[in-house]
Amino acid sequence: MGSDSKVRSFEEVSSHNKIKDCWLIINGKVYDVTPFMDDHPGGDEVLLSATGKDATNDFEDVGHSDSAREMMDKYYIGEIDMSTVPLKRPYIPPTQAPYNPDKTPEFVIKILQFLVPLLILGLAFAVRHYTKEK
């Protein structure tokens, strides 16, 4: 276990939320996973998304192996003061594009938004041209 073990506040832990400075709370313990960011099988984004909250459920839902759990010991830096952990996490709206259920690439959507009205307009002109009385 890390030599810097002590009781940490939620505010302190949640401020470590960057690729080069990443701490997580799992099962009441605080881990500095910064050295593991490049090696995490799920990528650094998975670890970053678990900052600023109690990441226990995120960790347990994945079903980590015994060896992964043993590896955590070298990243342990202390305990979390549970009285400082908020009961509810504030909602932070997503900063990405709106939900795209069929995973259509965004450029295809933009092209279709441009082309569909043109196609409808062209069809309207064609219908008008061919239905004119002669």
Rank of each mutant, 00 (worst) to 15 (best):
I19C: 04
L24P: 03
G122Y: 10
A97C: 05
D61P: 02
H40R: 12
M71N: 14
N57C: 04
P86Y: 06
P93I: 06
K6D: 02
K134I: 06
I19Q: 06
Y91V: 11
M72V: 01
P41I: 01
P94Q: 13
R89E: 08
K6A: 11
D44P: 08
D54T: 13
V7E: 11
G78R: 08
P93A: 14
S14D: 02
M82E: 13
E45S: 15
K18W: 04
P94K: 12
P98H: 13
L47T: 02
E11Y: 10
C22D: 05
I77T: 02
V116M: 07
I77C: 13
W23L: 05
S3I: 04
D81K: 10
V30W: 02
P41M: 02
D102G: 03
G122K: 05
G2Q: 02
L115E: 01
M71G: 11
K53D: 02
P35A: 10
Y31A: 04
V108A: 07
K6F: 08
V30Y: 06
L119M: 13
A126W: 07
N57P: 03
D81A: 11
M37E: 04
W23M: 06
K88P: 01
F125I: 07
E133A: 12
K132G: 07
T56G: 14
S49R: 15
G52K: 13
P117S: 03
W23E: 03
N57Q: 13
G52I: 12
V7F: 05
T131L: 11
I120Y: 00
D39V: 02
D21Y: 00
P94T: 12
D61W: 07
A68S: 15
G122P: 04
S15P: 00
V116L: 12
R89T: 06
Y91N: 09
